[in-house]
Design a protein around this nucleic acid. Structure first.
Length: 412
RNA sequence: GCGGGUGUAGCUCAGUUGGUUAGAGCACCAGUUUGUGGCACUGGGGGUCGCCGGUUCGAAGCCGGUCACUCGCCCCA
């Protein structure tokens, strides 16, 4: 640790960036609420097993990206690398299967030990939505529609493209996996180093390879759509029809796969080209076996997560700070009087600060630069007279107002 | 984890073939101005030149290492 720097991949968030991230979260809460979602805040750390079991031992997240440590009581603890597993654990812990379907929204920090880049941090923030209930394709449509509504509300409707695919149910996925492995086994010497490794860890990932040689082989590889059983095919068709009906544009991308073991059926990613290699801005899918895998009831689920930093960077939306009233006390009596004036105005709901240093000109300059709405000058003479000088900083007009009339005057 | 680039004030950047107290603009603070604003003038604070080591009489500039950021890969939000 040299100097007073934050640890690698972590940062301080303030100013415009903080406001912009808050705006993303606020928009999310508002939109998700209209879809019937309720808040679920789970701990930012869990027993390691909660993440290890559902994500899959071989996944990158589990094998090299988790912040895991033993606490003072000897428990294996992990800082959450995603929301889904924790939310599902909470669902089971609290017996929420009595209230299906459950629509749960969350947001907050998540942790992944990765090499940082722009738009990619070791501690970053996500908004998250999960819908737990029966395995019904219409729910997939609802979830994607929610994501699309949010993105539109953030002004990202034309910056982002929805890539959609189906991984099929477990049966279809396994059949396809076998077909894929036997196909690529034949070209093992031509595959990139990464892809040879993926052949054993996650063969579907090869479809997504950026290696030029791999791409040639992938072009002739068997297609997942050819290995879908009837159930999986119908499920996907229903999802597509639903999306058409709600008017969510999408591209069927057969190469879209997911890294985590628990995904089945629908998988989707909203992608932008404006953030370099960090183009995925919001992504998710269906995870029908997850809750059972964690030891819970047979309940299916679908969910997604969005990167708050990435969404904020793309949208540039900032909630404007509320315009303030600046008190300018000019003497001892004025300084004391300003405390009660401030109190009255704040009680009435205004943002009030006092500027007590420098000459009057400086203070008005600062108030103007801070985009304050009013300045209230309170000198000793004013206190004696029972009035303050209320100055409208937009128009430049000012008038003498009795102290007890200030709250009303400022409203007008 | 792998490969490339960058690092001088809060911000944007100068800084000659290594040469003595490291500069500018913007921003900030104060004064002109205890009673009227975004202007002007004057002044001020702020940098161990990312950090450590090496070469040299002498390093912001050269060499090595390290840290951070950044671009791509892996993977992902």
């Amino acid at each position: 640790m040299s100097k007073l720097q934050p640890a690698r991949g972590t940062r301080d968030i303030f100013g415009d960036e903080a406001r912009s991230m808050t705006a993303v979260v606020e928009t999310f809460r508002k939109v998700a609420t209209t879809y019937g979602f309720e808040e679920m805040a789970t701990p930012i750390f869990e027993f390691t097993e909660v993440f290890k079991r559902p994500l899959g031992e071989a996944s990158d997240v589990v094998s090299k990206e988790m912040y895991t440590f033993e606490d003072r009581g000897g428990e294996e603890i992990t800082l959450r690398p995603e929301f889904t597993a924790g939310v599902c654990r909470a669902f089971i812990s609290n017996g929420l299967q009595q209230h299906l379907p459950c629509r749960l929204m969350s947001w907050g920090p998540v942790f992944r030990y990765e090499r940082p880049q722009k738009g990619r941090y070791r501690q970053f923030h996500q908004i998250n939505a999960e819908l737990l209930g029966p395995e019904t394709p219409e729910f997939d449509v609802d979830m994607i529609a929610l994501a699309w509504s949010l993105l539109k509300a953030l002004g990202l409707g034309d910056k982002v493209v929805l890539n959609l695919n189906t991984l099929g149910d477990i049966e279809s996925r396994m059949a396809y996996r076998d077909a894929l492995v036997s196909y690529f086994e034949g070209f093992k010497d031509k595959l990139s180093e990464d892809s040879v490794r993926r052949l054993t860890t996650n063969p579907l990932r090869i479809l997504d390879s950026k290696d030029e040689g791999d791409k040639l082989l992938v072009a002739n590889a068997p297609l997942l759509s050819e290995h879908l059983n009837d159930h999986s095919r119908q499920f996907f068709e229903t999802v597509c029809k639903g999306l058409d009906a709600v008017g969510v544009p999408y591209e069927h991308n057969e190469r879209l796969v997911r890294g985590l073991d628990y995904y089945t059926h629908t998988a989707f990613e909203f992608i932008t080209t404006e953030l370099g290699a960090q183009g995925t801005v919001l992504a998710g899918g269906r995870y029908d076996g997850l809750i059972e895998k964690l030891g819970g009831p047979k309940v299916a689920g679908i969910g997604w997560a969005g990167g708050i930093e990435r969404l904020a960077m793309l949208s540039n939306i900032v909630t404007d700070a509320e315009r303030s009233i600046v008190l300018v006390p000019m003497g001892e009596a004025g300084t004391l009087k300003a405390f009660t004036v401030a109190d009255d105005l704040r009680t009435a709901g205004h943002v009030v600060t006092a500027d007590r240093s420098g000459n009057l000109g400086k203070r008005l300059t600062r108030a103007a630069k801070a985009n304050a709405r009013y300045a209230i000058i309170i000198g000793d003479d004013d206190v004696a007279a029972g009035t303050a000088m209320l100055k409208d900083l937009d128009s430049g007009e000012q008038s003498s107002v009795a102290f007890d009339a200030l709250v009303a005057a400022v409203k007008a």
